[in-house]
Computed example of a mutant assay.
Amino acid sequence: MNNHRRTKKEREQDEVVRLKKQLKEEKDKLNQWSDELLQKQRELEAKEKNLSTDGRETSGQNNKEKRKYQFKTRLETQRLILRPWEESDAEELYRYAQDDRIGPSCGWQVHTSMDNSHEIIRDVLSSVGNYAIVLKETNLVVGSIGLMIGENSNLGVSDTEAEIGYWIGVPYWGQGLIPEAVCELMRYAFEELGLKKLWCGYYEGNTKSKRVQEKCGFHYHHTNVGVYVDQMNEERTEHISCINRDEWESKYQNAS
Rank of each mutant, 00 (worst) to 15 (best):
N2W: 05
H4A: 10
R6H: 13
R6V: 12
K9I: 06
K9Q: 07
R11Q: 09
E12K: 08
E12N: 09
D14N: 03
V17E: 07
L19G: 03
K21P: 05
K24E: 15
E25N: 06
E26T: 13
N31P: 02
D35V: 10
D35M: 14
E36R: 04
L38Q: 15
Q39K: 13
Q39E: 12
E43V: 04
E48F: 15
E48G: 08
K49E: 05
N50I: 14
T53L: 14
G55F: 09
R56V: 10
E57M: 12
T58Y: 15
T58G: 03
T58H: 14
G60M: 04
G60F: 00
N62D: 11
K64N: 15
K64H: 15
K66G: 07
T73P: 06
T73V: 11
R74G: 09
E76I: 13
R79S: 05
L80S: 04
L80T: 04
I81E: 12
L82Q: 03
L82M: 09
W85E: 00
E91A: 06
E92Q: 12
L93Y: 00
Y94S: 08
Q98E: 02
G103V: 00
S105E: 15
S105V: 14
C106L: 11
W108N: 06
S113M: 00
N116D: 15
E119Y: 15
R122P: 07
D123R: 15
V124G: 12
V124W: 07
G129I: 03
N130G: 07
Y131A: 01
A132Y: 07
A132M: 06
E137P: 04
E137A: 14
L140K: 05
L140Y: 10
V141G: 05
V141L: 13
V142H: 03
V142C: 03
V142W: 04
S144T: 12
S144K: 10
I145A: 14
G146S: 10
L147N: 04
M148K: 04
E151N: 08
E151F: 00
S153V: 11
L155R: 01
E163F: 02
I164F: 08
I164K: 07
W167R: 00
W167Q: 00
I168L: 03
V170K: 08
V170Y: 01
Y172C: 11
G174R: 01
E180T: 05
A181M: 10
V182Y: 00
C183R: 13
C183T: 10
E184P: 03
L185H: 04
M186F: 01
F190D: 01
E192G: 11
E192T: 13
G194Q: 06
E204G: 06
K208A: 12
S209I: 01
K210Q: 10
R211Y: 13
R211D: 07
R211L: 12
K215L: 02
K215N: 09
C216F: 01
H219W: 02
H219P: 01
H219E: 06
Y220T: 06
H221D: 11
N224L: 13
G226H: 13
G226Q: 05
D230S: 15
N233H: 08
E234G: 01
E235A: 06
R236Y: 00
T237D: 02
H239G: 00
I240Q: 02
I240N: 03
S241Y: 04
C242Y: 13
I243Q: 03
N244G: 03
E247D: 10
W248H: 09
E249G: 02
S250C: 11
K251V: 09
Y252A: 11
S256T: 08
